[in-house]
Amino acid sequence: MPELDPIIHAPNRLRICAMLATSAELDFRLLKAQLDVSDSVLSKQLKALEDANYIEAKKRSYNGRPRTWVSLTDLGQLAFNNHVAALKSIINND
């Protein structure tokens, strides 16, 4: 039975992983707008995921402006899939 991942379990981090699972990379500003949080709150959540090697953040210049692109690593994708499977198993077992 898959286990819940304590790093992903926090609501904002779960939603960040869910959004990143839909695409190759997402812009920091898009994540911020979707979560409706401040830069510092989002940075803190991303740092926790980055420390676990679940995400990668790359800074690139676009039209002269720096943009931070965030992507889910293979490990992060696996952890997210396992976490979702664990949530489903809780629902099915109860």
């Binding site: 819940l4 779960l14 869910a18 489903k88 629902i91 109860d94």
Partner: peptide
């Protein structure tokens, strides 16, 4: 472990 309702809420959020 979260309850069934909490797990459902989390999956709905995803």
């Amino acid at each position: 472990l979260p309850s069934q309702t909490e797990a459902e809420d989390a999956l709905n959020a995803v």
